[in-house]
Simulated assay, not measured.
Amino acid sequence: MLTPGEFVGRVAEWVATFNRGSLDLPDGLLHKDATFRLNGVAYQDTLGRPASDPIVRLVSRGPGGYRLLVKALHYTLTTPEVALRNLDVHHGLATGHVDLSGVLRDTAEAWVANADIVMTIDLDGHITEVAVQMDDDRVARLQRARQ
């Protein structure tokens, strides 16, 4: 397993890659079946098909799901950026705070949201779940910008 410092370094590399506008991930950081949650709801559960459907698993989990979510975010916010603060790693959990900023596509206004993040880490140092908790009004504003 990675040390907490090594894990934080890998996550910092991931954030820097995201902020450069890339869809790439550090090798092996995300488990192939990693789940993504926003305010308690798994991405796979928003797709309107059973989570057991192989297509749903392919597009909603792991690196494939990450890339689809990031593309949607790039459509919603031009030049999105993430700042990760106070990342703390203990006993298979990484917790911290995220600042997401960018320019809303629909109005061209500058936008910032703060969120809490929890990542579950397996024994090999792969992230198996990313859970983000963001104010519902900020999430709704992002959804409006995508329409």
Rank of each mutant, 00 (worst) to 15 (best):
S52T: 15
A108D: 04
G96L: 02
A94R: 00
L73G: 08
A72S: 11
S101G: 09
H91K: 06
G102A: 04
L93Y: 04
S101N: 05
T76R: 13
D53G: 15
T79D: 11
A51N: 08
L87R: 02
N86A: 11
V103P: 00
T95Y: 01
G102H: 00
H97G: 10
N86D: 09
V103N: 01
R61H: 13
G96M: 04
H74E: 13
G48V: 07
N86T: 02
V98H: 00
A72Y: 04
T95P: 01
V70G: 12
E81S: 14
I55L: 07
S52E: 10
R57Q: 15
G62Y: 10
G92L: 02
T76H: 07
L87E: 05
A83T: 15
L73R: 15
G96K: 01
G62I: 03
P63Q: 12
V103A: 06
G48F: 01
T79G: 14
D99S: 10
L84C: 09
L77C: 13
V70K: 07
P80M: 08
T76M: 11
S101E: 10
V70C: 05
R49W: 13
R61Q: 14
I55S: 14
V59F: 13
R85S: 06
L58H: 06
V82P: 05
V70L: 05
V89Y: 06
G102N: 00
K71I: 05
N86F: 03
L58M: 14
A83S: 13
R57H: 11
G64R: 14
E109S: 07
T79Y: 14
V56W: 06
G102L: 02
P80W: 02
H90K: 15
R61C: 06
T95F: 03
L93A: 11
S52L: 11
L68P: 03
L87I: 03
T78K: 07
L104D: 01
A108Y: 00
N86L: 09
A94D: 02
R67C: 07
K71V: 05
I55M: 10
G92A: 07
V56I: 14
Y75L: 15
A108M: 11
L58D: 13
K71E: 03
V89G: 05
D106K: 00
D99N: 08
T107R: 09
G102F: 00
V56G: 15
I55W: 09
T76L: 15
D88E: 11
H74A: 07
D99I: 02
P50D: 08
T107N: 12
T95S: 10
P50T: 06
A108C: 03
L73K: 12
R49G: 09
L93E: 15
E81T: 14
S60F: 02
L68D: 08
I55D: 10
G102Y: 01
L93C: 04
T78W: 04
A72Q: 14
